[in-house]
Amino acid sequence: MEINSLFPPSLATPDHIVLAEELGFKSAWIYDVPVSFADTGITLAAAAARTKSIRLGVSVFTPHLRHLTMNAALIAHLATIAPGRFDAAIGAGFSSAAYLARKPAKWAEIEEYVTALRTLLAGGEVDWEGAVVSLMHSPVTGITFPVEVPLWIAAHGPKGYATARRLGAGVITNTRHGHNPVPIDGLCALTFGGTVLDEGETYDSPRVIEAAGPNAAMALHLGEQGPLAGTDEARGYAQAIAAVDVRRQHLETHRGHLIDFNKLDRPFVTGEVIRRGSRSGTALEIATQLRRMEEAGATAVFYQPGGPDIPRELRAFREAAELRHQIPALPVPEPAADQEVQHA
Rank of each mutant, 00 (worst) to 15 (best):
M218P: 00
E201N: 10
A320I: 02
E22P: 00
V208S: 06
D87F: 09
F37K: 01
G271E: 13
Y237A: 00
K52H: 07
T51G: 10
G297R: 09
A243M: 02
H16Y: 14
A76C: 11
E252M: 13
R235Y: 02
H137V: 00
R165I: 04
D127T: 12
I286M: 10
R248G: 02
P14R: 07
E22S: 14
R292P: 01
L258P: 01
P305W: 04
G307L: 02
S10E: 13
G281D: 10
A12R: 14
R66D: 09
H177K: 04
A82G: 08
I310R: 05
V140C: 01
L78C: 05
A321S: 14
G57F: 04
R324N: 02
S36C: 09
P308M: 04
I274Y: 07
A300N: 08
I90D: 03
A296T: 10
E334Y: 00
G297F: 08
G186C: 09
M136Y: 03
A316D: 14
S205A: 15
V126M: 02
F37E: 04
R292V: 07
K159P: 00
G168N: 09
D39Y: 06
A243E: 12
T202S: 14
L228S: 03
I286Y: 01
F317Q: 00
E22G: 08
A76D: 10
H177R: 07
